[in-house]
């Protein structure tokens, strides 16, 4: 049996990747909107995003809206593949118990 990807296999990071996976491949979401959709604290979300970024699963783009800095996040191609593999493995592991 395959092992579950430890980068995604944490409650917060699975929820983050599940949210970003719902966007198109070329779309991204701002940090505040992501935070709102996940109902996580900014500090907690940053911590987990850093781990996902380190694994190159999430791309981070810092830009400006007028004078306000905004950070946009997206699932990278690697990240999307890792998320799909994770979900497939998860379902396969649950299969025999159902």
């Amino acid at each position: 049996m395959d092992d579950l990807d430890p980068v995604i296999h944490a409650q917060a990071r699975l929820r983050i990747t599940s949210t970003l996976a719902a966007l198109d491949a070329d779309s991204s979401m701002s940090f505040p909107r992501l935070q709102e959709l996940l109902d996580m604290t900014a500090g907690n979300l940053s911590t987990h995003l850093r781990k996902l970024e380190d694994a190159q699963y999430v791309t981070v783009e810092k830009t400006h809206h007028g004078r306000t800095p905004v950070t946009y996040l997206a699932l990278s191609k690697t990240g999307r593949r890792a998320f799909e593999d994770y979900m497939e493995t998860l379902r396969a592991m649950l299969g025999p118990h159902a």
Partner: peptide, 26 residues
């Protein structure tokens, strides 16, 4: 999940539910 708990994995059934729940929200 509480901030302290969400760095850890939950039971795999619960993990699937978490992912579906977030997908449903989107």
């Amino acid at each position: 999940p509480a901030a302290s708990a969400d760095d850890a994995p939950a039971d795999i059934r619960e993990m699937l539910r978490l992912s579906q729940q977030q997908n449903e929200k989107m």
